[in-house]
Amino acid sequence: MRTVGIMLIACSLAGGAAAVQARELREGDKYMCSWGAGTAAKAQELKLSGVSLYAARQKIQTIKFSKSWMRMMAMGITEQTYDSRSRLKPEAIRQSFYQDCVRYKVARK
Rank of each mutant, 00 (worst) to 15 (best):
C101T: 10
C11N: 08
Q61T: 04
F97V: 10
G15C: 11
A19D: 04
G15L: 11
Q80F: 06
E24L: 07
W35F: 10
L8M: 14
S52E: 01
L48D: 07
V102C: 09
A14E: 03
G38A: 01
M70F: 01
E91V: 11
L88S: 15
V106D: 05
A22F: 13
I93H: 03
D83V: 01
P90E: 04
V51N: 05
A18F: 12
T81R: 02
A74Y: 01
L13Q: 02
Y98A: 13
Q58W: 02
G28Q: 14
C11P: 00
M7S: 15
S12C: 06
A17R: 08
A107E: 04
V51L: 10
I9P: 03
A10D: 03
C101K: 01
E91H: 09
R94I: 04
I6F: 15
Q95G: 12
A22N: 14
R85V: 07
V4P: 01
E24N: 07
D29W: 10
K64F: 05
Q95S: 15
K105P: 02
Y98P: 02
Q80H: 11
R57S: 06
A43W: 06
L88C: 06
L13C: 15
A107W: 09
A22P: 03
L25P: 05
S68N: 14
Y82V: 03
Q21H: 13
Q21L: 12
L13M: 15
G15Q: 08
K42N: 10
Y104F: 13
G36N: 10
A74Q: 02
R2A: 12
R87T: 12
M7R: 12
D29P: 01
G76Y: 01
E91G: 02
Q58Y: 03
I93G: 13
Y54C: 04
L8H: 07
L25V: 09
T39I: 10
S34K: 13
Y82M: 02
I6K: 14
W35T: 00
A18K: 08
A18E: 08
A22Y: 11
A41P: 04
E24C: 05
A74M: 08
I93Y: 08
A56N: 04
C101M: 03
A37M: 12
V102S: 02
S52G: 07
P90W: 11
K67N: 06
T81P: 00
A22Q: 06
A40Q: 01
A14K: 00
E91L: 08
M7V: 14
M72V: 09
T78Q: 02
G16N: 06
S12I: 11
Q99C: 01
D83F: 10
A40R: 07
S49P: 03
F65S: 03
S34H: 13
M7L: 13
V106M: 13
L48C: 03
G38H: 05
V102M: 07
M70T: 10
D29Y: 02
A107S: 14
G76Q: 10
A56C: 07
G50F: 03
Q80R: 15
L48V: 08
A56Q: 04
